[in-house]
Simulated scan of single mutants.
Amino acid sequence: MPEGHSVHRIARQFARNFVGRPVRASSPQGRFADGAAQLDGCTPTTVRAVGKQMFMEFDGDLWLRVHLGLYGAWDFAGEILVDPTIASANGRMGQTNQRGTDLATPDDAPIFDDAGENSLASIGAPRRTRVHVRMSEQTKGLDEADGLEAAGSEWPPPVVGQVRLRLMTDVTCADLRGPTACVVETPEQVAAVIARLGPDPLVGDPRENEERFVQAVRRRNVAIGQLLMDQSVVSGIGNVYRAEMLFRANLDPHTPGRAIPEEIVRGLWRDWVELIRIGVETGQMMTMDGLEGDEWRKAMAHRDDRHWVYHRAGLPCRVCGTEIVLEEMQARKLYWCPQCQR
């Protein structure tokens, strides 16, 4: 499931390529035909992400709400304007989400992840195959004059697979497949959904967000490993960030929220603020600190080299050498070190 950083990148891409442009909306699959008919011919005016959900406002007081869930993905084709605000912490461009992450290097070579997503062409559930109109290493080429990327020459792109919703401008196409939620809502319905969500570091007042998180955690007699995955407590954290944040805080995942000292809870929130910033800028859930040069390139290319404990069951802890444990918590995989996190 895409975590919060990916959804913010999706929202930025829609803001750059769709807001202010009339769209043609259709549902090739047919399951969203009525909703697509409502949006067809309308113009997106704003788009925002809150946690794992995206909200796109259209003229006429219509909102499109999308939650990708476990299997959803957006595929983009046509001319794609790059968001210049998405860069790594040292000012280098991080233009793709996972596969095809471009970072300036001494030899100007791009870094390609061995599995995952591409934020210019596809964001969401990883696929084993890719539609031929998506961005590829061969078709890639940034026009420095206008920041335009070409993602295939056939127009309009052929419909491939079960496309729930297709949004098209004159030059850009976005196809949505397999979402958990894809609905047209009123402003009041959208406000009600957002009100139920926990704080997102990239939305709203920073101090208020921190206080909401601290209070939500410290009043609950529920394991912190469960609370971090509760989207009413905090928005955007999924399995990867949950495991990594708890390790970075040296917290046993089973510790009840109310038993955790306030300063540690505040530290968790501030760590989430920093990690999501890095995630949005680079497109990677980079949770290991201090990596440089070849170590950085290796970590950007391989997921297993950029995390402390996630996906490392049975391997030695990078800090103490203890075997990393894998267990289930509320039907989701949880990775942690029983020595460091106690």
Rank of each mutant, 00 (worst) to 15 (best):
R242A: 08
R130P: 14
R65S: 14
S235Q: 00
A191S: 08
W336Y: 12
A174K: 12
G4S: 06
C317H: 05
R21F: 13
T101I: 15
V133R: 13
P206E: 04
Q38V: 14
Q98A: 05
Q29V: 08
A181H: 15
E79G: 11
Q341F: 11
A313V: 01
T45D: 02
T96N: 07
R127V: 01
R21P: 09
I80V: 12
Q13S: 01
D200C: 01
P158W: 02
G20I: 08
V184I: 12
G238I: 10
R318M: 09
I111S: 00
R164W: 14
L64D: 00
D75K: 05
P158Y: 14
R318H: 11
D107V: 08
G147Q: 04
S26R: 13
A243P: 07
R164N: 01
M288R: 10
Q162Y: 10
A145G: 00
N90Y: 14
D34V: 12
W63H: 15
G293R: 06
E244A: 04
G51N: 12
R128L: 09
G152I: 12
L202I: 08
P22I: 06
S26G: 10
A104R: 11
P110H: 07
Q215G: 03
P157Q: 09
E3C: 08
R130W: 14
E210Y: 13
P201W: 11
S88V: 04
D143V: 02
R65N: 09
P157I: 13
A192W: 15
L227W: 14
W296Q: 02
A33D: 10
Q339F: 13
C182I: 05
A37V: 04
A195T: 06
G204E: 14
R318W: 09
H302A: 00
A109V: 01
A49G: 11
S153A: 04
N250E: 10
R220Q: 09
L68P: 11
A243L: 04
S122P: 09
P206F: 15
K52T: 08
T282N: 01
P2Y: 07
R277T: 11
T96V: 06
F76L: 10
K333E: 02
D113W: 09
A49V: 09
M93G: 01
D114L: 03
